[in-house]
Structure formats: structure tokens, C-alpha cells
Design a protein around this nucleic acid. Structure first.
Length: 746
RNA sequence: GGGCGCAUAGCUCAGCGGUAGAGCACUCGCCUUACAAGCGAGGGGUCACAAGUUCGAACCUUGUUGCGCCCA
């Protein structure tokens, strides 16, 4: 972060295990406990037999794995039922068989008992609506101590839970399987059942979803145990409401659906972990079975013992927006900075972290007015960084990027700009060395542009004021001494400032970068700088002076705009340009100026120049070769003031003695007559004209087809119709001109 | 199994009712005095498929196919 130039207040670095944060954890735990929002209960939880700890729902990763589906017959003859299972060993803990109440196949069994194989037990058959009659045989084994759904069925039917496995996944049920690991017990149980002729069918491999510990990958084992929970219903509702009523804005808004889907249907949060690392649960047990939650300023009675479990790390992380500001004390920081303005984070932890910060923030600050209780007013969710082909980066794939390596090779600015440029809200970012190289090239471009400006005496008005007058306040109307090109670039600058402002406001960093990139490279460097060379070398001191001021001003503003995404180069260049201390403390651009006429004129100039360049290129003329030319009719066009610029950009020299027109092009109302010393490549020119003619004809056809439709002219908005008419007129004129030119070539 | 999203140029992505765009890659020509990590020009797309709505659809609706993500 430091090397990327992140401007953060390092003095506020915090760790969730710091004293202050621990105090916040204890405080909120006690409040929740006293409000009956934290409870301890015997529940089925996700258990990792390797980490030996409970896991919350979101710490379990599901994947489709190959397993087996085994059909087992319970009971005999009339009194038998076949159940299907992927975890055969759990049958040792079955305490019922369940069927759907409307399932005719099993009506006669409901209320009776069947014999459970391999044990000497008989278990009841119960009817439960949650059984899916279409899955397997429609009858399911019920293992309340080892399956969450079965646990619920057990609760509804008052079935006992029979625990047959210890915390390491080793069978504890007395008998031949005792002491076997769950994965050893599974085939052993199946073999024993087969021996007894109870296996009806075996499907192998059977692909089904299996939960894995997100920390170590071990297959999760549902386990009934005593754990601590947060009763989330009221907290989650408040967290959902804050987004629903607009107090917190998610960006992009498409994330709302996901967020609501989560908070509106959240299971109670299992917060106890059987790990040695973390905040310990502040609950103490007395010698006579007393239980008491101890607050941060209390001391537990002598001889009491603390609960051995620790809290889920997301519990303390959920307090981050206020625990870092000194809460529970009413500190100046808390008053000044809570609610925070915007949380920038990846969408992958919207649930882990964002939803929980919302719940705890709203709960902890519930004494404030609702608008100020939220932990942040906006959440800007960005995507994940992926490789050049959009694939997830992973060590095993070997497609990871070390940012420090890129910083060494391409520079911090290029690395940072690449990341910012690829950032579109809510979607992932593909990055590659090609992009980083492109960003580095852009840094070089800025460097060279600034070099050019300084070499040519670019200057800034005192205080970085814009060129032209009046010098202060309001919409500035540049002085009449400004050239069209100057007014054009200033007008464009103003538009870009407004656009970048708008985009940054919406966290559209990629689009903001793109806008700046094109302005800086295509408009400023490729056109303005080239146009500026004319007055700078003209010997007209006044014109040169104006150009120097505009050059300086635009560069100054541009570097300020680029500074957030390219901090180092822009600071270096800006200081060199302005002689000030740092662009970091310079004001954000707010320049406003609009000159549509200048924009139109320069657009016309660009079209003319581009067309002539195309001609030169097609004719195989070297870029540096000077060609005598006459710009006939330019006097009556808006380009009349720009003949010198046009000549400079196109290397056209005035016609001398013996000037002989060998080619003439009509563009933008000007007929450019060129003397190519008689060496016109007729074939190339014919090809060029034929291509243009085909395009013009296609254009004319499209437009006239539209206009020929009565429903179009009647129903389409009049401005669209007018525009189409104009398109047709232009296209037809082009067709006529090109046909004429082609005829004259023959 | 449920929900959400995406299919646009070789690659990565913008555009989201009115003439298909960018960066990179590619082709050609250039040491044109800020920049060869550059300059100029160019080629390349029935906007996944099929119906529908509309004067008009890459864009709206429905379905199909293929991918991705989240949750069971």
C-alpha cells in the first residue's frame, strides 16, 4: 500500500486483538447477552473434525464431490422400508424413518416401528412435510445428532438425538465399528449391511454437494453440540431496512438483491469457536452451576472459570467502524467520524463483513437518530482481480501477480493506474502485463508532454488561474486573444472535469480513467500540442504567450485530475510545472467553460487533416515529405483562420513556380489541390475512392430506406427524421463527388 | 435443486431504443526537432441462438443454449 502511494493515516492502524478493540468486543457481547440476543444452545452446527471447531455457515465451502448413494432396507417383509443415504455410517445413530404425510406408498407404516439393522433397536416411522417424496425412495433415515434437517425433524417429532461420533469423526457407538474413522466406518457399515442382505442398490460414483472447511478443506461433519449463537432476526431486519430506506447506499445497486437475500433469511449466527486464538467468550461459570456474562469493567468472582471457547473473528471485525474510533467511550473521533462516509471493499465479503458491520453498527448506535446510526452511508463494492483471461488467480494455477514485482518493472503509477482503469463497480478486473505496459506508456506520455510544455516555456498565472478574463469567479469568457484551438481545449477540459467528477461520484473509476486517458493522450497530446507548435514557433510573441499560458493551465488541471490514480508521476511533473510543494494539497479542478463553436471548428479541422493524411498514406507519401498545395475556398469556411495550422500538420508548403495540380480533394468545404510532381498512384487512389463510394452508397441507401417508410416519418421524433434527412443529403453529395472524381481518374 | 448475473472485434471489456466503440494484439508507412515504451494510416464484428414488442432492437419481453457466481 505504501509503495502504491495509498494516502492513509497510518497512525490509526489497528488490530482486532488490540486492547481497545477487545474492550469493544466485551461491551457489545454483554449488551447482546443482556438483551437476550446471545444464547447458548445445543444445535447441529458445521464441525471441522480436523480443526476441532465449529464453523459458521459461510465458513463452509460447498463443492460437488463423488461419493456413493446406498439404498438400505430397514425392517422385513410387510414392515420394511428402503432408505437412501450418502453417509451410511450415520445409520448407527438413526432414531426414526420419515416419509411425506401424503405419500400413499408408506401410509401403512406411519405410526409403526421398523427394525434398525446392525443394532438391536426398533425405530418409529414418522410423517413429516419436509420429506421430498421424489428423492430416492421417498423415505429418509433420521439422524438428529448428525444432520441439520434430521435435527429439525427430530425436534418436531420429539425424537432423541443419538450421538455416534466424537469430535474427531471417530465412531463411538458401541459395537464392531467403535473406534473407526468416519470414512473407514462408511464402507465397513455398508459391507456389514450387504452381509445381511440389506443393501438394495448402490450408486457409485454419486456426485453430490459436500461441505468443506474453508480453512483446511476437510469434509465438514454436522455435529450436535453446545454452542453460542447470536439471535440475528431483529439485527438482520434493521440491517436490511437501512438499505431499503436508503440510509445506506450499495454500489452498484444490483448488489441489493444479494444483500436482501442474505439479511432477510439469515440463520442464527454461531459465534463460538473451539480455537486457542481469538477473543474469549466473556461468560464465567460458578462452582454451583451459575452462569454470568462479565462486562469489560467487571471482574469475575473468585474461583469461577471462563468459557473455553473464543469468538468467530468476524464478530470483532463487525465492530470495526466504531471500535477503531474508541467506542464504547464517547470519543471525539467517534463523534467526528461515525457514520463513516464510504466503505470500499470487495463484493466477496458483502456477507461476511458488510452485513455484520451493519447489524452491529445499528445495534451499538441505536441511541442515535436512525440516519446517524449506520456504520457507513455508502458501500462501494469492487470486483476481484483476475488474470489476463479472466480466470481466478490462484497459486496452484500459477497465474498470480506480485504487485511489488509490477511496481519494480512498470512503476507504482502504472500498477495503480492499471488497477483503477480496470475497475468497474461489482465486476471483476482482468489484468495483464500488457495492460501494465500500456499504463507505463501513458506515464511516459505525460512525462514527455510536460517536458514539451516546459521546454516551450509553459507558464501559469498566479494561483493557477485560467487564461482569459474575467480572472475571478463565475463562468469565464476567455479573452478574445485566445485562439480557437485554445478555446477548444479549454472547453474540452471543462467537460472532462465534469465527467470525471460525475464518474468518481459513482465509483466508476475505470470510466473516469478512460476519460482522462483519452483527453490527455488523444486530445491534448495528439492535437493541442501539435496545434500549439504553430504559434510557439511563429515569432508572434503575443500568440506564443497565450499558448504558453493555456498549455500550462491545461497541464496543471490535467495533472490534478490524474493525481489520485497516478500519484507519483503527477506530483513530480506538477511540482516541476508550478514550482509548488505538492499536487496533493492542490485544489480539485472546478474550471467551467464551454465553447461549442470552437469545438465544432476544431472537429472540422480534425476531419480535414485526417482525410488528407489518409490520402497521403494511401499515396505512399512519406510523412515528412513536403507537398506544395493550395487550399482553395478555405476563405469562406470556418477553417480560414487555421490555414497555417493545417499546413503545418500536413506538411503542405505554399505553391511555388510551376505549381501543377495533380490531385484535388474536396473536404469540409475546402478543395485541397496538391502537386505531387506528377506521380499520382492512380490505382491506389481509385481503390480509396471506390471504398469511400461504397460506404457513401450504403449510407445513402440506409437513410433513404428509412425515409421511404411512412411509419418512420410519421411516428419517429421529428429531430430523428431531420437528422436522417441530413444524413441522406450528405451521403448523396458524397456519392456524386466520388463518382465525379472516379470518372476524372479514368 | 433454488436465486442472481454474463454471452459485443483475436484477447480483456465499455455501450444498454435512433449511423457498432476502446485498450492490447494485427497490417502498412515513418528516426515528422516532447515522446520509436513513439507518430500517421489501415484491416477486423449477421452484438450467442430463436421468437415477440416497436416506425426502429446489441439495447426491452419470452424461450433456448453455453458459461460464471452466490446459496442449499
Amino acid at each position: 500500500m505504501r509503495r502504491l502511494g495509498d494516502s492513509v493515516d497510518w497512525s490509526r492502524e489497528r488490530f482486532t486483538m488490540d486492547d481497545g478493540l477487545s474492550r469493544a468486543v466485551q461491551t457489545i457481547f454483554k449488551r447482546l447477552y443482556d438483551d437476550d440476543l446471545i444464547y447458548r444452545a445445543d444445535r447441529i452446527i458445521n464441525w471441522c473434525p480436523r480443526c476441532l471447531t465449529a464453523l459458521s455457515d459461510i465458513e463452509v465451502d460447498h463443492s460437488d464431490d463423488e461419493g456413493e448413494l446406498v439404498y438400505i432396507r430397514y425392517g422385513d417383509g410387510e414392515h420394511s422400508v428402503v432408505v437412501a443415504t450418502t453417509r451410511a455410517e450415520t445409520m448407527l445413530g438413526d432414531t426414526a424413518v420419515a416419509v411425506h404425510p401424503d405419500d400413499d406408498r408408506y401410509q401403512h407404516l406411519v405410526g409403526t416401528t421398523v427394525e434398525l439393522p446392525l443394532t438391536s433397536r426398533s425405530i418409529p416411522v414418522v410423517a413429516d412435510e419436509h420429506v421430498d417424496p421424489s428423492f430416492g425412495t421417498g423415505a429418509v433415515k433420521v439422524t438428529p445428532a448428525h444432520d441439520p434437517n434430521d435435527f429439525e425433524i427430530g425436534r418436531r417429532h420429539d425424537l432423541p438425538g443419538l450421538s455416534i461420533m466424537d469430535e474427531r469423526g471417530v465412531i463411538t457407538a458401541p459395537g464392531p465399528f467403535q473406534g473407526l474413522d468416519r470414512f473407514e466406518a462408511r464402507p465397513a457399515v455398508v459391507a456389514a449391511l450387504r452381509e445381511e442382505g440389506r443393501i438394495v442398490k448402490e450408486v457409485r460414483p454419486y456426485v453430490h454437494a459436500v461441505g468443506h472447511c474453508s480453512r483446511c478443506g476437510t469434509t465438514v461433519e454436522p455435529r450436535q453440540s453446545l454452542q453460542w449463537f447470536v439471535r440475528v432476526a431483529p439485527l438482520a431486519r434493521a440491517a436490511g431496512d437501512a438499505v431499503r430506506d436508503g440510509r445506506v447506499r450499495l454500489s452498484p445497486p444490483e448488489m441489493n438483491a444479494r444483500y436482501f437475500g442474505w439479511v432477510d433469511d439469515m440463520h442464527d449466527w454461531c459465534i463460538s469457536r473451539q480455537l486457542w486464538w481469538g477473543h474469549r467468550i466473556p461468560v464465567f461459570y460458578g462452582p454451583n452451576g451459575q452462569v454470568r456474562c462479565i462486562g469489560p469493567d467487571e471482574t469475575p468472582p473468585q474461583g469461577w472459570t471462563q468459557d473455553p471457547d473464543v469468538l468467530d473473528t468476524w464478530f470483532s471485525s463487525a465492530l470495526w467502524p466504531f471500535s477503531t474510533l474508541g467506542w464504547p467511550d464517547d470519543t471525539a473521533d467517534l463523534r467526528a467520524f461515525y457514520p463513516t462516509s464510504v466503505l470500499v471493499t470487495g463484493y466477496d465479503i458483502l456477507f461476511f463483513w458488510v452485513a455484520r458491520m451493519m447489524m452491529f453498527g445499528l445495534y451499538a448506535m441505536r441511541d442515535r437518530k436512525p440516519a446517524d446510526a449506520v456504520p457507513f452511508r455508502a458501500v462501494a463494492l469492487h470486483g476481484l482481480v483476475r488474470d489476463a483471461y479472466g480466470k481466478k488467480m490462484s497459486k496452484s494455477r500459477g497465474n498470480t501477480v506480485d504487485p511489488l514485482d509490477w511496481i519494480d518493472r512498470f512503476g507504482a503509477d502504472a500498477t495503480r493506474f492499471t488497477l483503477a482503469r480496470g475497475s468497474n463497480p461489482g465486476s471483476d478486473t482482468a489484468i495483464s502485463e500488457d495492460w501494465a505496459a500500456g499504463s507505463r506508456n501513458f506515464c511516459n506520455k505525460l512525462w514527455n508532454a510536460t517536458r514539451f510544455a516546459l521546454l516551450n516555456g509553459a507558464v501559469l498565472a498566479p494561483g493557477g488561474r485560467p487564461p482569459g478574463d474575467p480572472p475571478h469567479g463565475g463562468l469565464r469568457a476567455p479573452h478574445a486573444s485566445l485562439a480557437t484551438a485554445d478555446r477548444w481545449i479549454l472547453s474540452r477540459l471543462s467537460s472532462v472535469i465534469a465527467e470525471v467528477d460525475r464518474l468518481l461520484e459513482q465509483y466508476e473509476f475505470g470510466k473516469a480513467c478512460e476519460a482522462l486517458y483519452h483527453f490527455a493522450w488523444d486530445e491534448f497530446c495528439d492535437w493541442y500540442v501539435e496545434l500549439a507548435k504553430v504559434p510557439l514557433s511563429s515569432g508572434d510573441a503575443r500568440a506564443a504567450g497565450t499558448t504558453r499560458r493555456v498549455l500550462g493551465f491545461v497541464l496543471d488541471q490535467m495533472l490534478r485530475l490524474l493525481h489520485p490514480v497516478m500519484p507519483f508521476v503527477t506530483d513530480e511533473l506538477w511540482c516541476a510545472l508550478t514550482g509548488e510543494d505538492s499536487v496533493m494539497v492542490a485544489a480539485w479542478p472546478a474550471y467551467e467553460f464551454s465553447d461549442p463553436a470552437a469545438e465544432a471548428d476544431v472537429a472540422s479541422l480534425m476531419r480535414l487533416v485526417t482525410e488528407l493524411r489518409r490520402f497521403r498514406s494511401d499515396q505512399g507519401l512519406r510523412p515528412g515529405q513536403r507537398v506544395p498545395a493550395r487550399l482553395a475556398g478555405i476563405g469562406s469556411t470556418p477553417l480560414s483562420a487555421h490555414e497555417e495550422s493545417i499546413r503545418a500538420l500536413l506538411r503542405l508548403v505554399p505553391p511555388g513556380d510551376g505549381f501543377a495540380v495533380s490531385a484535388a480533394l474536396a473536404v469540409e468545404g475546402v478543395t485541397v489541390e496538391l502537386d505531387l510532381a506528377g506521380t499520382v498512384d492512380v490505382e491506389a487512389e481509385r481503390k480509396r475512392l471506390e471504398k469511400d463510394l461504397a460506404a457513401a452508397r450504403r449510407e445513402a441507401e440506409q437513410a433513404s430506406a428509412k425515409l421511404g417508410s411512412v411509419s418512420f416519418t410519421q411516428k419517429a421524433p421529428s429531430e430523428v427524421v431531420a437528422k436522417t434527412r441530413q444524413r441522406l443529403a450528405v451521403a448523396e453529395a458524397d456519392v456524386a463527388r466520388l463518382e465525379g472524381r472516379l470518372a476524372s481518374l479514368a
